[in-house]
Simulated scan of single mutants.
Amino acid sequence: MFLVGTGAGALQLECATDVSATTVRGSSERVTLAGVRKMQVAPRSLRTVPVSWDARTPTELGSLLDLVEGVWGPGPFRFVTDLAAVTSVLLPREANLMPGFFTSSAAVEGGPVVLADGSLSPRSLLITDGIAYMGTPATLPVLPGSRVTVSTYAQGSGVLQLAAYAADKTRGSNLTASVAPEVPMAPVSATWSVPDDIHWITPGVSGFARVARPAVSFTDGPVGWSPGEGIVGVLTGMDRSALRAEPQQGRQHLSGSASIVELGSR
């Protein structure tokens, strides 16, 4: 089971996404006449995640088939895989606070910082004014009624935010929680139940002096930081076959597979 953001809100697909993924980082290598090896490496890696199902009826697979056939449009779409839901649904560049993936009017880059557990975060944000959101507003799909946990390493007290949007991306009220770390740059977190009319969320922070390593999971509590397992891409390469047919009952059960192919250039 995994989620995909569509023009009508969050769509739940009754399939399993594999915990493994193929990761490719493009590179170009050449050796000069002087014997010097040079290599140009792409700024980021791109993933391909297998999707599979077993003993499903065509009706149960209807939404998946619609997605593959382009009924929801050409995409790309925001996917929340099984692994992402229990680690971090943020995109890797959102989870790592890369430029262009947070609200620049509310925060500035803070550089590397040592966290309370002694580990080193390569990037951090200094919160200046207002709410610093991670990612593009209203692009992260969520199931109404589900549980969502937002966490980050923080210095000083502040407020964890969750901007909420209806299926048509009409803005609702923010879910908020005031928190403070036990010591500087220790983790803080908050968990909410998603209102029944909400299909999209955007995490944010305000009031802290500094934050690093944000995470969002669909769990009932914090699970620790993850580099981000969210994917923007398309579903392609479907291979399906009849597992068994029951013509007298008008039923057919299918098994098959497809792939979520990540798109993007940065």
Rank of each mutant, 00 (worst) to 15 (best):
L3E: 02
V4P: 04
T6H: 05
A8K: 12
L11Y: 09
Q12K: 14
L13M: 10
C15Q: 10
T23P: 01
E29W: 08
A34L: 11
R37E: 11
V41Q: 10
P43W: 09
P43K: 02
W53P: 01
A55S: 11
T57L: 11
E60F: 01
G62S: 15
G62Y: 12
G62W: 03
G62H: 15
L65G: 08
D66S: 13
E69W: 04
E69L: 13
P74I: 12
P76T: 05
F77R: 05
F79M: 06
T87S: 10
S88C: 04
V89I: 15
L90F: 06
R93G: 06
F102S: 04
F102K: 04
T103D: 09
P112T: 06
V113E: 02
V114M: 11
G118D: 07
S121Q: 04
S121P: 03
P122A: 12
P122H: 10
I127L: 15
A132V: 07
A132Y: 02
G135Y: 07
L140M: 14
L140A: 08
P144I: 06
R147M: 13
T149M: 07
V150W: 08
S151A: 12
T152R: 03
T152G: 02
A154V: 05
A154K: 02
Q155E: 15
G156W: 04
A163S: 12
A166C: 09
D168P: 08
T170Y: 02
G172W: 02
G172R: 15
L175N: 04
T176W: 08
S178Y: 08
A180F: 05
S189C: 08
S193A: 13
S193D: 12
D197K: 06
D197M: 08
I201R: 01
T202W: 00
S206F: 01
G207Y: 04
F208I: 01
F208H: 00
A209Y: 06
R213H: 09
R213F: 09
P214V: 08
F218M: 13
P222V: 00
V223M: 07
S226G: 09
G228S: 05
G228A: 01
E229P: 03
G230F: 05
V234P: 03
R240W: 14
A242I: 15
L243F: 13
A245G: 11
P247K: 10
Q248K: 15
Q249G: 11
R251K: 15
S255L: 11
S265I: 10
R266H: 14
R266N: 13
